[in-house]
């Protein structure tokens, strides 16, 4: 049987529809904009309220999805010139291209979504072995050492809490993306320092930024391929 040129193209188009080009969701954080107000914690507040992240007084047991740490702690002593030393850098899950946490998870409770590259947590499946916490080179994961609910002042019923004994982390607001929204931190950021989108789409704002600005990532030498970029 011979396939006509027209039929071949039609087949290709059908295949493209059936297998859409995977997106690669990424975030670029413009540190100069972020540093306009170094004491600002709006991103963590918005995130933690939206996702019922508890405020645990014992710092050793805290749970955090997005938080700030000093520049040299985020990028290493060697990379911090006096100009940036001590400056607060927003840190969150990097939704890596090759996530170590996904590789080590013995149940597939944490997995990388093929459609958009989000590193997801299935809290229903997590057995609490904390192997992902040992594997993550960025300290992005938190464990519920005890029941989180007593540490929540208010609970937003639109999002579940977690139980004791499971690991959690930032999900790039998968639930908001599903409704066509942006991550809570991106939306709330007063100086609009965070830009989020599909880095695989050259016309997206985040792809444009990464094309034109100097962008760097945490611990690139480990080969994890973080999808959170910092601009300076």
């Amino acid at each position: 049987m011979k396939i006509t040129r027209q039929a071949f193209l039609a087949l290709l188009a059908a295949a493209a529809r059936a297998f859409p080009r995977p997106r690669r969701m990424a975030m670029a954080i413009d540190l100069a904009k972020c540093w306009k107000d170094r004491g600002c914690t709006r991103c963590s507040q918005a995130c933690h309220a939206a996702h019922n992240v508890p405020q645990i007084p014992d710092r050793r047991r805290e749970i955090k999805w997005i938080w700030k740490d000093r520049f040299e702690n985020a990028f290493g002593e060697e990379s911090a010139s006096p100009a940036v030393a001590g400056a607060p850098v927003p840190l969150l899950c990097n939704h890596c291209e090759h996530p170590a946490c996904v590789k080590v998870c013995p149940t597939g409770a944490t997995f990388k979504r093929a459609s958009d590259g989000l590193v997801m947590m299935d809290e229903h499946r997590c057995i609490g072995c904390r192997y992902c916490m040992a594997a993550c080179p960025y300290g992005s994961r938190s464990f519920n050492w005890s029941d989180p609910r007593p540490f929540l002042r208010t609970i937003d019923p639109a999002y579940p809490t977690r139980t004791k004994g499971v690991v959690e982390k930032c999900t790039f607001c998968a639930e908001r993306l599903a409704r066509g929204g942006q991550p809570a931190c991106v939306e709330v950021c007063p100086p609009k320092a965070m830009v989020f989108g599909d880095a695989a789409d050259p016309s997206s704002a985040v792809a444009q930024l990464l094309q034109t600005r100097h962008a760097f990532r945490r611990k690139p030498e480990l080969g994890a391929g973080p999808n959170v970029f910092y601009l300076l």
């Binding site: 996904v102 590789k103 080590v104 998870c105 013995p106 149940t107 597939g108 409770a109 499946r125 997590c126 057995i127 609490g128 072995c129 904390r130 192997y131 464990f143 519920n144 139980t163 004791k164 004994g165 499971v166 690991v167």
Partner: peptide, 19 residues
């Protein structure tokens, strides 16, 4: 050491050879 020992069998129900 497990946070959720009640879910121990998940290791068998969802075998993950990369781990």
């Amino acid at each position: 050491d497990m946070g959720r020992p009640d879910r121990l069998l998940n290791v068998l129900l969802h075998p993950s050879p990369s781990s």
